[in-house]
């Protein structure tokens, strides 16, 4: 990939990426009650990463984010599967999700659902997939 040596772009993207990250994480957690969820959050995250890759060199970004996205995909799928298996362990059908309310000091009354765990798996798989696709193509010359 050619290196677009553009200072304005770099400056804008540095800010934008942070905003997008925050937004996509927000999207991800709001997914349970409001529009959002694993897919969207994950895709937003990977969109931000793509932006980074576009703006900077692949190598630079890779040094800063040393993650093998294929492994990320696998971990995501595994998490999803294990939340499903968890249902079996507690004697319910595969992929039965549970939820409950806990009082956590800082956040107050919070709902914790295993569905969120599952969604984390989905999000990780989505990020891993899209990033490894893009990186594979981008790497190839």
């Amino acid at each position: 990939m050619k290196e677009p040596n553009d200072i304005i772009l770099h400056a804008v993207i540095k800010v934008a990426v942070v905003i997008i990250f925050t937004f996509s994480i927000n999207l991800f957690f709001s997914g349970h009650h409001n529009p959002g969820g694993g897919f969207i959050g994950g895709l937003g995250f990977s969109a931000a990463l793509t932006l980074l890759f576009l703006a900077f060199d692949i190598e630079t970004v890779r040094q800063n984010i040393p993650v093998d996205f294929k492994v990320l995909t696998a971990i995501g799928v595994l998490i999803a599967v294990f939340t499903g298996v968890g249902g079996i362990v507690f004697g319910a059908p595969f992929l039965t999700q549970a939820f409950n309310y806990f009082d956590i000091p800082v956040f107050g009354k919070t709902e914790l659902a295993t569905a969120v765990l599952f969604d984390i798996g989905v999000a990780m798989a989505v990020i891993g997939t899209s990033m490894s696709i893009i990186l594979s193509i981008g790497d190839d010359h």
Binding site: H32, H33, N34, G36, G37, F99, E111, A113, A115
Partner: peptide, 10 residues
């Protein structure tokens, strides 16, 4: 059932 207000996500 699922503790979720977003039906699609549920």
């Amino acid at each position: 059932l699922a503790g979720a207000r977003n039906i699609v996500n549920a």
